[in-house]
Design a binder for these strands. Structure first.
Length: 467
RNA sequence: GGCGGCGUAGCCAAGUGGCUAAGGCGGAGGUCUGCAAAACCUCUAUUCGGCGGUUCGAAUCCGCCCGCCGCCUCCA
């Protein structure tokens, strides 16, 4: 199998992806700040990470993935206070929501889901700050501990931000903490009255946003790990600061490969609360869109390209899924005995190779889907000319299922079981058609349609499916 | 102001120097069907935002212009 290549934000080039430890990938996905239910934009990143994770497994790698929760920051603290409940309890509901939405979107579980306020990770953060103190990267001001950006010469290497070109004097420190340099960032925040804080060896307070990912990532995955991902907006300052903290403390490379997913826009406009277009998964399900259509739409566009998320797109996605699902159903109905034709084996092999070539090329999911649809087309042609044998059907089915271990979007519709009454109606319609009573036959078909059951008459009998 | 991305058919979207510009959705016609549905067949971009340039050759490289978006402040 050929080599997976991924764009590395660090350097900006498409590079071969090779894990540090042979056959084992250690990856970290920046997760949600849990003050709210994650929206569809958040989930684009998680779906793209899921595709990566699944493809790595497809290629035979063992994957250890960490997805964190930021459960302490200004917004979570404010939300918990407003709700009048403890922080942990407040954030837990959004963590639960996250898992519900991941399940709906068929996103595989990560191996670790650390929370910033877990004691073991707070300890790791404190230890990290102490290490940075020893190495002279910090200073204290008003009880807070800051990272001194000037002490880390590589600062800016990820985002390629030209420090001199930054708009000077515009930055306002929202937290009203005092910094020596506007670019310095807080590692440990001094306690403010009423806010959650922890008594630690570096003083009382709470972790700064950037600190947690460095500490949790290195604690679970090691001081240098393979891949770190998130949305493009995290490149600066979040990931830049993570590099400074981590490499400042260890003197070793923190992450070998940085991967960032582009934003999505909604109906041609950027997503924002004020526009009311910040959809989340349950909103869309409530509008009767299937979770698989959402997943399909999110993964059908190359992850480094902005994606225009529209209702029309969801409908198109649902139709595209149905095409593949119907194909799988029809393959199951092939009755002709026999082994696969060499042409079939050839076509299947070529499609799988095309699929792999596409994904190896920086996860080009659009091209990978095209390979799948071409295979479906070929299979349908064989089906319609009744030349397909059971062996052929197995070949096609195997290939689609293999590709679907990565897409995770086909064959997910639950086939409902027919109740007795429905079965009786189908039988009655069969008899009506036999005596050419088409008025009654159509009446039954309409009635079942109203119940969400679609009938299709084929030469071998009537097939039904859920609408 | 600094940095970066994008603009391909009615819609979504691959392709980044050279075979007939993938694929999906939609549309038109046809086959099949009692009629449908599904599926299949044919058609649906002589052209890739615009204008110049480089080249034997450009959607692909360069310049300028127009439009959209992102980062520089919390943000997937």
């Amino acid at each position: 199998m050929s080599q997976l290549k991924l764009t590395n934000t660090l350097g900006g080039n498409v590079e071969p992806f090779e894990p540090l430890e042979e056959g084992h990938v250690r990856m970290y996905t920046c997760g949600l700040t849990v003050y709210n239910r994650g929206h569809i934009g958040n989930f684009r990143t998680y779906v793209s990470q899921d595709v990566l994770r699944r493809y790595l497994k497809y290629k035979g790698y063992r994957v250890t993935q960490v997805t964190n929760f930021t459960d302490v920051d200004d917004k979570t603290i404010a939300g918990a206070r407003k709700a009048g409940i403890p922080l942990r309890e407040y954030t837990q509901q959004y963590i639960d929501n996250f898992f519900e939405d991941c399940a709906a979107l068929n996103i595989e579980k990560s191996e670790y889901y650390p929370r910033a306020t877990d004691q073991e990770y707070l300890d790791a953060m404190v230890a990290l700050v102490q290490k940075l103190e020893e190495r002279g990267h910090t200073y204290e001001s008003d009880g807070s501990i800051y990272f001194k950006v000037d002490s880390f010469p590589d600062y800016g290497k990820l985002s390629r931000i030209d420090v001199a070109g930054m708009k000077a004097g515009v930055r306002v420190d929202a937290d009203e903490y005092t910094k020596e340099n506007a670019r310095d960032f807080v590692l440990w925040k001094a306690p403010k009255d009423g806010e959650d804080s922890w008594d630690t060896a570096i003083g009382p307070g709470r972790p700064g946003w950037h600190l947690e990912c460095s500490a949790m990532g290195m604690k679970i995955l090691g001081e240098t790990f393979d891949l770190h991902a998130g949305g493009v907006d995290l490149v600066f300052p979040h990931h830049e600061n993570e590099i400074a903290q981590s490499e400042g403390a260890t003197g070793k490379p923190f992450v070998r490969h940085w991967m960032h997913t582009e934003f999505l826009i909604v109906e041609g406009e950027k997503m924002s609360k004020s526009k009311g277009n910040q959809f989340n998964v349950p909103d869309l399900i409530a509008e009767n869109y299937s979770p698989m259509a959402i997943r399909y739409l999110l993964l059908s566009v190359y992850y480094r390209q902005q994606l225009n998320f529209t209702r029309e797109g969801l409908e198109q996605a649902a139709t595209a899924i149905r095409r593949v699902d119907d194909f799988l159903d029809r393959l199951g109905e092939v009755t002709r005995e026999g082994d696969a034709f060499p042409e079939t084996a050839q076509a299947v092999k070529a499609a799988v190779e095309r699929f792999e070539t596409a994904l190896d090329d920086d996860l080009n999911t659009s091209a990978a889907l095209a390979a799948l649809f071409d295979l479906v087309k070929g299979g349908n042609t064989a089906l319609s000319s009744s030349t397909m044998t059971k062996g052929d059907a197995e070949g096609f089915k195997g290939a689609v299922e293999r590709m679907n271990t990565v897409f995770g979007v086909f064959g997910q519709g639950k086939k409902m079981t027919l109740d007795d009454e429905v079965e009786k109606l189908i039988q009655e319609r069969k008899e009506a058609r036999a005596r050419r009573d088409f008025a009654r036959a159509d009446e039954i078909r309409d009635e079942l349609d109203a119940r969400g059951i679609v009938l299709e008459d084929t030469p071998t009998g009537t097939r039904w499916k859920q609408k």
